[in-house]
Design a protein around this nucleic acid. Sequence first.
DNA 1: GCCAACGTTGGC
DNA 2: GCCAACGTTGGC
Length: 137
Amino acid sequence: MRYWLFKSETSTWGWDQQVAKGDAGEEWDGVRNYQARNFMREMEVGDRGFFYHSQKDREIVGIIEVIAKAHPDSTTDDDRWECVDIKAVKALSTPVHLDAIKADERLADMVLVKNSRLSVQPVTDDEWRIISDLGGL
DNA sequence: GCCAACGTTGGC
DNA sequence: GCCAACGTTGGC
């Protein structure tokens, strides 16, 4: 199983909305970036990911699970774009803020730090463990 | 609100 | 196939 990070601006699609979808989940649509799309193509059902709020909040708030492999993005007719479906698994008891991630030298190589604009990113096993710990899980 | 970083587009 | 111009993202 691999780990990922999904980034969304709170006002566009927030954690609360994701939770409201329950186990049915929702497709992670709207991605128009090849790198991000390619990562989604690599995802398998059962993979897990962090849910990050960009811009105003700038913190990881929860954990999601991939429930469907990449398929055409229903929000466009352009067949270049695909997305996976994800569902909320649980919220972190303590959200992990970007400041805390930057302050932890073990997380210095995270894509979130190095390429903050990429909206779907891979997370290493170590990073997953460290952030889960910081998040109180 | 600003601006740096980055990705995409399109003319050549 | 290169690269300038442009648009968008997201941290600050």
